[in-house]
Design a protein around this nucleic acid. Structure first.
Lengths: 140, 140
DNA sequence: CTTGAAGCTATAGCTGCTACAGGTATTCAA
DNA sequence: TTGAATACCTGTAGCAGCTATAGCTTCAAG
């Protein structure tokens, strides 16, 4: 049996986070000690590892719920799992692309700033007037 | 004089957002009509444009507060402005890099999934056991 | 048996909005 | 001028995914 602190040390997350996962029913309620403290099994530990690993890869809590429930049935076809992973990868790719556009524009602004007074600062000027942007990033 | 709806149309953000900016004192309180509706000046409009543009480049609200206050003084040296922009760009760069690591790992998992049963699914397997990750991404 | 760390519940806060609900103002056409 | 449609008002709660208190109880080591 493990305490909440054991699990926390083990997975690198905080005890509060584990309680939070229980509250949102991502982790099942564990047994309790005589004094009402949580007592976890190896199965809990494994599940928390799975969760934390998926979170570290950026999966949302809802994705993780789905992955956990899919992983319960060993004989199910894994295409649904695949779909969740691909969907997430595509979202990550899209995010990377939009951040790269953004960085380009930041680079341009910074590069154009000659270092004089704010009155002539290219950064402030561009922020004041979106037409000075070349990258065509959306305002909304 | 502009209504809140005029500003919203003009900047592509919602009226609720503009009220929110007022509430957190990012936008100053405008005058009111006889019937208590907000009435904005051109200065308000410009400020909101600045804010929305900076937000669209990913600056945080706190960064924007700083940029706005720096931009008030036309004769100040613009190195502080530069510093805010560089700090943000570095954060964006770091985020891009971590997302790229993450995508690599997702690609690897997806690539290894042969499409059979969940019991043999590489995606589930990797999520269950972080040691199967090659990219060395952090769990925490 | 004491003491200090760890655990408990409940609640509020973080970012940057968005979405109600339930009421009032304005505007435009008839 | 009236009436309908639209816009606006305040206040509050919600989203994700935690984190951080406060004020208490329990556990484990010495």
């Amino acid at each position: 049996m493990f305490s909440i602190g054991d699990l926390a040390r083990d997975t690198g997350c905080k005890a509060e986070t584990i309680r939070y996962y229980e509250q949102i029913r991502l982790m099942p309620e564990p047994a309790r000690s005589a004094g009402n403290q949580r007592r976890y099994t190896q199965r809990h530990r494994d599940r928390l590892h799975f969760i934390r690993h998926a979170r570290s890869l950026g999966f949302t809590i809802d994705d993780i719920r789905e992955l956990l429930s899919l992983s319960d049935d060993e004989h199910r076809d894994c295409s649904a799992v695949d779909a969740v992973a691909r969907r997430h990868r595509d979202a990550v790719t899209a995010r990377i692309e939009s951040l790269m556009t953004l960085r380009q524009e930041l680079d341009r602004m910074i590069g154009e700033c000659g270092g004089g007074e704010v009155g002539q600062c290219r950064i402030i000027e561009v922020l004041r007037d979106h037409r000075l942007c070349e990258s065509g990033h959306p305002l909304a």
